[in-house]
Design a protein around this nucleic acid. Structure first.
Lengths: 146, 146
DNA sequence: CATTAAATGCAACTTGATTGCAAATATTTT
DNA sequence: AAAATATTTGCAATCAAGTTGCATTTAATG
């Protein structure tokens, strides 16, 4: 198995971010790049374990550093658990659908929301209960404080 | 202190939802109606405690029943914690800004997102790191299963 | 007022996530 | 290349949000 898929390159991504190429970071990044959709920490652990066992804490720290460097995006859920996805050029910001029953997050096409809703109203549809627009950042006071 | 503010009425809201008028439910709903913005469970506890001590578990159960009856909306955050706000006519769905530093959630005007972003770029600005559109509901398989 | 159903409180527990610190691994310097 | 330094990792313990089971209390019903 190679260290790159059709899209992103593990080594290049880490270098660009100025992060050292540790075995664990490479394994996590590889799993993220090859993911079919947003992954939980548990799922990331399962997938990296296939090749090498990584400590849960290490995965959290790696994800945290990836997030700081905008390599990945974090998607919080209603169930006190976050999911993670690549934030690379090949995976631009897009809406997500979260099933509150099976707790699965799926990606919506990066359309205007109205179109996305039409798309969802199609044949194999979901029941939509609510739509949240969530802006993350740092408020003025916190910026001034640092 | 009365049981209604300029907007919503505690008793009417509970009756409409078919929920019994317990002391605790009324206290929580009153706090929610009088809230200046989304509240955490901890904050709700603090505010209800001023008049009567309510168990944490009870608050969770009350919020859960309010959510099921669309009396409130739940807003999950990056920090494994949810915030809650009224879902009444006077508080229509709108975007939120979450400061990842002080962990405060503030409401954005219910404008088109592009306008809201302009608004945010104004004089007293926030630093925006990312915008998430999050659709909650039940996926097809889970619907069929129930 | 008595009966029945629903809601609450408490204690214990589950789970996602974090912290402190020692050991291991990378990077830098000589 | 080896030694010195800085970074990263793993483990154990811990924290905090949220949940569950069950006995008790409170509200709704007749």
């Amino acid at each position: 198995m190679t260290l790159e898929n059709e899209h992103c390159n593990v080594v290049a991504t880490l270098r660009k971010a100025g992060l050292s190429r540790t075995t664990q970071r490479m394994a996590v990044l590889k799993v993220m790049i090859q993911a079919d959709g947003p992954l939980s920490v548990g799922e990331i652990l399962k997938r990296t374990d296939l090749e090498q066992r990584i400590n849960k804490v290490t995965v959290y720290r790696i994800l945290s550093s990836f997030k700081e460097n905008s390599i990945i995006r974090e998607l919080p859920t209603d169930h006190g658990m976050s999911l993670y996805e690549m934030a690379c050029l090949h995976n631009p910001v897009h809406p997500h659908f979260y099933c509150k029953t099976c707790r699965t997050m799926s990606c919506l096409p990066p359309l205007r929301l109205s179109q996305a809703l039409d798309w969802f109203a199609g044949p194999s549809t979901f029941r939509i209960d609510d739509v949240h627009v969530h802006v993350n950042g740092v408020c003025r006071q916190c910026q001034e404080r640092s």
